[in-house]
Design a protein around this nucleic acid. Structure first.
Lengths: 225, 225
DNA sequence: CAATAATCGATAGTAATACTATTATGTTTG
DNA sequence: CAAACATAATAGTATTACTATCGATTATTG
């Protein structure tokens, strides 16, 4: 009984999987338990063998869906960015003032996702934690260029482009819109990671989400708002 | 005939190696060829077996210096940050105006190192390319907390602290000095990587080092200079 | 100068990883 | 009901990430 193909369909580039995991129960388990296991073991120690054991299936069956754990992580990251793009669209649509659109978008990109939305079969809060810690591994790899050719980073680029466009509406002659946005996105991830593991590299402020505050401020100052 | 123990001694936390690679010719070869191989193969595909073959030695001998390739990368990264700290000190010492000190420090952190200094046995330009692409893997790993306990990230933290202190001299009530500096450092690395592999995430400007310009500007705007 | 320690190369071996291939048994669908 | 498809079970391979042992050579020290 799969409650799939939910309201908002998130479409993932087909080249990243061998068999669409959203078309079978086993596939969904791979995604769900994959997220759990990657989070608890870390991507390095995560294997398809362990995953298969967890979901009561076999290694070979998992390989029928994904060519490697690298592509599973890629899939999950693509899913995250598709979902994020949707969120950004929702929160900027119908807002006239580009300054508010921008602020909302930055908040979207930098805030911590709360647990327990239960709209998808995928737990977005958990997924965010994986994206924060592990997702840079999907491009910091020898296969970046090949994967980029296949379009695996397209959604990520779209997200950057979308927010960059808002900055250009505010300051049309701004020379570095993409750098600013990608700095904010990657920066927010790093800061969340640092806050947990290397707090001396960040400034955690009690009772405030310093990450949102800092990057919102940074962007607004950069565009002299 | 090793031309070692050069003028400026870079001291590396001893816990990261089993035997100090700077005390033997084999050790130096491990560092030198290690850098070459990691750059050409990528850290994932780099193995001690391949390294041993390259330097005409054996896997077991390499293991006599480092417990794992992870610690070799950690060593190299620590070396880079020690060297970077020295550079920053040199370029900020005796400069009275904190604004200029800051600008120099940011330039140090964001500029591309040119080839062929030949002061150390280590090629800093090549090392920087490795640090840009691979170094985040030393902390984005399950052993972060243990490695942090052992002090492996101390030099990195010192660098951040040092530059953060300059920002505080300029703006004493600034709430996010560490976030700002670590954002600049990690951001600069990402932008250099993006420029090569995912150019739509950045803004390469012909004839100008956009990375230096962008982050210098960013910092100065953040501190309203 | 001799003893001894350090260093290294050579070889071997292990457990785990990252896969691929084959086959047999269901299960769905047309 | 037959064809097509999905999965489990099993087996197997090449590579990786190590560890252990053992002489031979080289450097250090007493």
């Amino acid at each position: 009984m799969r409650a799939l193909h939910s309201k908002l369909a998130i479409k993932i580039n087909e080249k990243v999987f061998k068999k669409d995991p959203l078309t079978s129960e086993l596939g969904e388990k791979i995604l769900r338990e994959g997220i759990n296991l990657i989070e608890s073991l870390g991507f390095e120690n995560f294997t398809f063998k362990k995953l298969a054991k967890e979901i009561g299936s076999t290694e070979a069956s998992v390989y029928r869906y994904f060519d490697s754990k690298h592509y599973l992580l890629t899939y999950l990251t693509m899913w995250y960015w598709s979902w994020m793009e949707y969120r950004i669209v929702m929160r900027t649509l119908n807002i006239e003032d580009p300054k508010i659109r921008l602020r909302n978008a930055i908040k979207c990109l930098t805030e911590e996702i709360e647990e327990d939305k239960e709209i998808h079969q995928i737990d977005e809060a958990k997924l965010q934690r994986i994206v924060v810690v592990e997702s840079s591994k999907i491009y910091q790899s020898k296969s970046v260029d090949a994967d980029n050719e296949l379009g695996f980073f397209q959604v990520y680029k779209q997200v950057v482009q979308r927010v960059a466009d808002i900055t250009l509406q505010i300051k049309p002659n701004f020379k570095y819109p993409h750098m600013l946005v990608s700095t904010v996105i990657e920066g927010a991830h790093h800061q969340r990671f640092f806050a947990t593991h290397l707090p001396r590299l960040t400034d955690v402020v009690e009772g405030e989400d310093a990450v949102i505050t800092f990057y919102t401020q940074l962007v607004e100052r950069e565009l002299n708002l």
